[in-house]
Simulated scan of single mutants.
Amino acid sequence: MAEILAQKDALEPACRLLAAGEPVAIPTETVYGLAADATDGEAVARIFEAKGRPRFNPLIAHVADMEMARRIAVFSPLAERLAESFWPGPLTLVLPHRENYGIHPLVTAGLDTIALRCPQGFGREVIARLGRPLAAPSANISGRVTGTTAQAVNASLGDRIRLVVDGGPAKVGLESTIIKVLGDELTLLRPGGLAVEEIERLTGEAVKRGATGVQAPGMLASHYAPHTGIRLDAAEVRPGEALLAFGPDRALGAENAAKMLNLSPAGDLREAAANLFAHLSALDAAGCQTIAVEPVPRHGLGEAINDRLTRAAAPRE
């Protein structure tokens, strides 16, 4: 298994491995990322190999600040406003990349745009120390449940990488919201840890939904999936099922669930988002045939929670 180091002791070891082209699992405020030097094709290829990720699925390039970001992508005034308001934080912007943008083409999967994010905490610190952007998809086997703790990451990828940096449980618990900015037009490519309503309030612009194709990470129909099947919007619990609950009111027959975990007994969507992947993993380990999921509201962070649950429940590819 990989070595696990507390983030207070991990900056120099992580930078040494990253500079040598090795991927390192690092904490961010959203989820744990499997990071590698985004300018080094062999390093990026090791991400795809470790995750078993299809190479047509683009990656996010993580930057330390706006200076680094502007060297890579073209920022419209609207994109500048979004970055100034929500970076560092759980927002990824998909923008046209510059002609000589310095990122390896494996990161963009051949697209003429690039996904950029400035993370909080250790992720930003290691990028600044390294002096290069990091490609960093979620630190898990491709298509499976995202890791929100160092222990979950080590269980998934520990035999494929050398170092996991432990920053404790991820604060947000969902991947970043991805917004494509084309002039004054905003399109949601993936709901995530920043509610779309916050973006609309800031900009006064409606964010379009319904994007198609793989323009950014997290757009595959089947994704974030446990091994156990998932049944959504469950009004009752069937014999032998596990139950992923939400709020104070229970589905019919909940007392007979083989195992039950509640995303948020108080019905708090922020708490539910932070618990989603850890609870899915724990119920997956219970060995039931199906996980029944109680309805979760679709407003605010509920949009992202339902997106993850829908993709987790989709037919497996």
Rank of each mutant, 00 (worst) to 15 (best):
Arg55Tyr: 00
Pro90Val: 12
Ala69Cys: 07
Pro58Ser: 00
Arg98Met: 06
Gly52Pro: 04
Val63His: 11
Pro96Leu: 04
Val94Pro: 04
Ala43Tyr: 08
Tyr101Leu: 10
Gly52Tyr: 00
Ile72Asn: 07
Leu82Phe: 12
Ala69Tyr: 05
Ile72Tyr: 06
Lys51Asp: 07
Ile72Gly: 09
Leu95Tyr: 08
Glu84Thr: 15
Pro96Met: 06
Tyr101His: 15
Arg71Ser: 11
Ile47Ser: 00
Tyr101Gln: 10
Tyr101Ala: 14
Leu106Phe: 12
Leu91Gly: 06
Tyr101Trp: 14
Met66Lys: 13
Glu84Val: 13
His62Arg: 04
Gly89Leu: 03
Asn100Ala: 14
Arg53Met: 04
Ala69Trp: 00
Asn57Tyr: 01
Gly52Ala: 03
Arg55Met: 13
Arg71Ala: 14
Ala79His: 01
Arg46Phe: 05
Leu78Ala: 06
Gly52Asn: 00
Arg98Lys: 15
Trp87Met: 03
Ala73Val: 06
Ala73Met: 11
Ala45Val: 03
Met66His: 13
Pro88Val: 07
Glu80Val: 15
Val63Trp: 11
Met66Val: 09
His97Asn: 05
Asp65Pro: 10
Gly89Met: 11
Lys51Trp: 07
Pro58Asp: 02
Pro77Trp: 10
Ala79Gly: 12
His97Arg: 15
Pro105His: 03
Ser85Gln: 15
Ser76Tyr: 10
Phe48Gly: 03
Ala73Trp: 06
Thr92Gln: 07
Arg71Tyr: 00
Ala61Arg: 09
Leu78Ser: 02
Ala79Arg: 05
Pro88Asp: 11
Val94Leu: 14
Ala45Tyr: 05
Arg98Ser: 09
Ala83Ile: 12
Arg71Leu: 09
Leu59Lys: 02
Pro88Trp: 07
Arg46Thr: 07
Ala43Arg: 04
Arg46Glu: 13
Met68Asn: 03
Ala69Asn: 03
Phe56Cys: 01
Gly52Met: 02
Asp65Gly: 13
Glu80Ile: 13
Arg46His: 08
Ala64Leu: 02
Gly102His: 01
Pro96Trp: 09
His62Val: 04
Phe56Val: 01
Ile47Glu: 00
Val74Tyr: 10
Glu80His: 13
Val94Glu: 05
Thr92Ile: 12
Ser85Met: 11
